[in-house]
């Protein structure tokens, strides 16, 4: 259900300890610190594996997250805005990661550009509460989604390369 390389990536992301959601005041701050630590480590892992593929930041409260993710194909970099809210029931429920600009361009999305995850994601997440955090959601959810969906959208011509930078 999870391929070997994802598994390996996953095993190198530090697990979280604190089970707290955004309504839990002080405990949430502790959880948020762990989220950042885990994310920083994951981005560093990606960089050293020459597979840097996203950046994220949050508002002060850590309830709204936004950033960029990208997919490289044929030497071209396709970049997309990422955003999601931390639900009140986090970390029992995973964040619903969205790529708003792709809304309506693929059937593998729910309203607002929320990506449609595989049947395996939720059980896996549920089994790993509260150890999995945002970094794990990115590695298990958005990463594989991009790898499958973006090439397909490029092929169909619904995603085109923009020369940004």
């Amino acid at each position: 259900m999870v391929d070997e390389s994802t598994k390996k990536t996953l095993s190198k992301i530090p697990l979280l300890k604190t089970k707290a959601g955004p309504r839990d005041k002080d405990l949430w701050v502790q959880r948020l610190k762990e989220e950042y630590q885990s994310l920083i480590q994951y981005v560093q892992n990606n960089k050293s594996a020459d597979n840097d593929w996203f950046r994220l930041e949050s508002n002060k409260e850590g309830t709204k997250w936004f950033g960029k993710c990208w997919h490289v194909q044929d030497m071209l970099k396709y970049e997309f805005d990422v955003e999601f809210d931390i639900p009140v029931t986090y970390p029992t429920t995973a964040p619903e990661i969205a790529l708003p600009e792709l809304d309506g361009k693929t059937a593998k999305m729910y309203r607002g550009g929320k990506i449609c995850l595989t049947d395996h994601f939720k059980p896996l997440w549920a089994r790993n509460v509260p150890k999995f955090g945002i970094a794990h959601a990115m590695a298990l959810g958005l990463g594989p989604w991009l790898a499958v969906e973006i090439p397909e959208m490029i092929e169909k011509g619904v995603v085109k390369y923009n020369e940004k930078e």
Partner: peptide, 24 residues
């Protein structure tokens, strides 16, 4: 007991971590 690596306790504040993330 978990097999995986847990995040280590840190002395850094949330703001410092956020800055560190921003500097990546």
């Amino acid at each position: 007991d978990d097999g995986g690596d847990l995040v280590q306790d840190t002395e850094l504040s949330l703001e410092e971590l956020q800055r560190q993330m921003g500097n990546l």
